[in-house]
Amino acid sequence: MLINEKPFLHWLTHFYGYGAWQAKVWFVGYEEGGGDLPEEVAAKINYFLDAHGAATAPELCDMREVYRHVPFFSDGPKADKFTNRHDYRFGNQAVLHGVWKNLISFEHGYRNEKLPDLLAYQKNSFAVASAQRQALVQLYPLPSPHNHAWYYSWLDLPQFPFLKSRVLYEKHVYDYRIKNILQQVVTHKPEVVLMYGMNNINALKLSVQEFFPDAKFKMIKAVKLHIPQHHLADLGETKLIVTTQIPALRHGRVETGFDWEAFGKSLR
């Protein structure tokens, strides 16, 4: 399946993630996950153009519908269990997502609500647009694998020279995307925005302060196995948290993790 210019450009310009801008809790990840195979990328962007082709503004979409259109690729023991990404994350034999489970814990801690069965919540409630509980936003739109490999330089799209490297791509899209995300903060006034896995903390803080001149960041030190180091700012009615930490264990090691429910509670 080829990656074509029109759906690629539409995704790059208009796709911002999943859920609802009206939600009170926003999670902003560094970039859209996946992207190991061009067939997966093509399936996502083609569906987005078909379903959201009339979009003229930053768009959040239905994650479950997107995932129905993305085939499940695997050579391992799971290969015969799932036909698409929806089955893998939301079906009867769904697998708990290593990041989402901690985002769910963070949200319930912040809301001072009892922690639910994490897998059941993922399957039935997480980032459901109509519920307007969460927005799952991506700072950078192109699906990219966790190893940060950069496959897009191989695309036959010479009209997009910024795809030659990750650095050029991020530089090309950063300004308009962070401004659009911050504008949505102004418009919808979420209670809390957690930006996680960010490796450009200083640039982000500068962008926020250019958009919100009165914003002042306070750095909160990490408490091992409890709360990650983070930068905190009040943006009027919105509390913004920026951290380099990803809500998942690194290499499966417990000593690299934090209590994301406790983190949420600490911000109430």
Score class of each variant (00 low, 15 high):
Pro228Gly: 07
Ala129Asn: 08
Ala79Val: 03
Gln122Cys: 00
Thr238Ile: 04
Pro38Ile: 07
Trp100Ala: 07
Glu40Arg: 13
Phe27Glu: 03
Pro71Ala: 12
Phe258Gly: 07
Leu240Asn: 07
Met63Thr: 01
Lys6Cys: 04
Gly53Val: 07
Ala43Leu: 10
Phe126Cys: 04
Lys123Asp: 05
Gly257Ile: 02
Asn147Ser: 12
Lys78Thr: 08
Ser74Asn: 13
Gly264Val: 06
His226Trp: 01
Asp62Met: 01
Val193Met: 11
Asn147Arg: 13
Arg253Asn: 07
Glu237Arg: 13
Val242Gln: 08
Val186Lys: 15
Lys101Ser: 04
Met63Ile: 09
Pro161Gln: 11
Tyr174Trp: 15
Ile181Arg: 00
Ser144Thr: 14
Pro143Val: 01
Asp117Met: 08
Leu139Asn: 08
Leu12Phe: 05
Glu31Arg: 12
Leu232Asp: 06
Asp214Val: 06
Ile178Gly: 10
Val173Cys: 05
Ala20Gly: 12
Pro58Lys: 08
Gly197Asn: 09
Glu113Trp: 08
Asp259Lys: 06
Ile3Cys: 06
Thr238Asp: 10
Thr256Val: 02
Leu37Glu: 13
Gly34Trp: 01
Pro213Trp: 02
Tyr176Gly: 08
Val193His: 05
Phe8Asn: 05
Trp154Tyr: 11
Gly17Thr: 13
Phe162Leu: 10
Arg89Asn: 11
Thr13Gly: 03
Gln134Leu: 02
Thr56Phe: 01
Asn199Arg: 14
Asp80His: 11
Tyr169Cys: 00
Pro71Ser: 13
Phe73Trp: 11
Phe162Gln: 14
Val95Trp: 02
Ile178Pro: 02
Leu118Arg: 11
Ile201Lys: 12
Pro7Gly: 03
Lys179Gln: 14
